[in-house]
Design a protein around this nucleic acid. Structure first.
Lengths: 234, 234
DNA sequence: TTTATTAAGTGTAAAAAATACATTTAATAA
DNA sequence: TTATTAAATGTATTTTTTACACTTAATAAA
């Protein structure tokens, strides 16, 4: 049973704790983040990350899930804690420490729910509007983290539909890392790893010829992780 | 001017914020962490990380610095935020979210102040006693972070005296990564990078022959960072 | 039905990086 | 003078990374 805050830690300053989410989505070769136009003070009318306050009965991870679900209607989304921001005057309305998270979602599965409750819009990571507080800093840090993590863990796939083509996967990595990759080397490496499995279907959106669809191979990844083999995506 | 918490965010739950420090030190081929025996409730008499509460007028970074100074007497120490821990019942005395930091210090420069205020002791990273709350989790995460960061940034040097020998540096990396390194390859790589500068002095503690002392080359590192060259320690 | 168009798909050679490995040297102590 | 000990040194092999150009499948246009 949890005792009252005053039990042992008297005289300590209670400070509000917020959670803000950098939500990444990928579409048409662009890495995007989802922003909302604030309909409340402070910062009414300005662009910001989706956020909320940590409740007494939830962990930070749960709060991030709740906040993400509120905006996108999605569950079972990749979410990772990023960093705690604590400048004393970061939020002029109160002393608020914000713990930033980043999420990776497949834009296609989320667009229905979006903008029902709040005015929300996707922005290219290369063209982020002015954001309130330290939210820009959060976005920059989240992008760097995504760049680093996507090299050694299969988190990029969270941004794609279950079935994807190799050119799509390559374009995604090019968007994440903001660089061009050689298509022969990219294909060679990813196939050699055994981490994606070819289907008999083709996707013909991108060309007349069409490109074969693949799925991520969860078992193979588990086996490699288990055996301690270090993995190199890209 | 900061307004009262009630200004806009009414009805939000105030939660205490703590800062806990995983303090690394290196001595005699061992990577160690500094622990205190708690002289207060809850957990009186148990081993724990050094910690404290975030005050209303300080950032998390400042709080971590303050806490570290309290125990070691040191300033200008390498400190980095690690992760926020928020299990609802992690601290039975109250709802406390703890933001963990890790610090790297040169043991030699800190030993005077130590244990004056609190009972504190160094433990090998391979032999950590039972810790309160989730402090063991914090230590494990901090070690992993140190392993990763020490490969691409010169943070290992924070654990050594200003002047060090190449065998000492190698031993340090071996302790951090818990693996043996080839001394010819290690020496070759670190010298080739230009990141350490040879002195005319020798350190004769380790052998009759003595090993030449080196210092970290801050300018060279700045130049490489500036030019965007990716750096590989070890 | 032929031809043009377009992105998908394919292999090899060269360069760079990482690894494995054994002997000599400098200083002190016996 | 000799023995001892850790420091210092270079090369060959393997592995990984990079650079690079033509063919193929399908559709649309002539």
């Amino acid at each position: 049973m949890q005792k009252s805050i005053a039990q042992f830690y008297t005289q300590e300053t209670p400070i509000l704790i917020a959670v803000d989410c950098v939500i990444f989505g990928y579409q048409e070769g662009q890495l995007n983040i989802l922003l909302i136009k604030r309909n409340f003070e402070p910062g009414l009318g300005q662009w910001s990350l989706m956020g909320g306050f940590l409740q007494g009965n939830e962990t930070l991870d749960w709060a991030a899930k709740r906040i993400l679900h509120q905006l996108t209607g999605l569950d079972n989304v990749y979410l990772e804690q990023l960093h705690a921001y604590s400048e004393v005057a970061r939020d002029k309305a109160a002393r608020v420490v914000s713990v930033a998270y980043y999420a990776l979602i497949d834009i296609a599965t989320s667009n229905e729910q979006l903008t029902k409750t709040q005015e929300a819009a996707w922005f290219s990571i290369n063209n982020i509007p002015k954001l309130i507080f330290d939210h820009r800093e959060m976005c920059d840090k989240a992008w760097k983290r995504l760049q680093r993590k996507s090299l050694s863990q299969p988190i990029g796939f969270e941004l794609l539909p279950t079935k994807f083509t190799i050119p799509q996967l390559q374009q995604l990595y090019e968007a994440i890392h903001n660089e061009n990759l050689d298509k022969r080397n990219f294909r060679k490496n990813i196939l050699l790893s055994g981490l994606i499995t070819k289907l008999e279907e083709k996707n013909k959106e991108g060309s007349k010829k069409g490109a074969f669809l693949y799925v991520f191979n969860t078992e193979k990844y588990a086996a490699l992780t288990e055996s301690g083999t270090s993995i190199q995506f890209k």
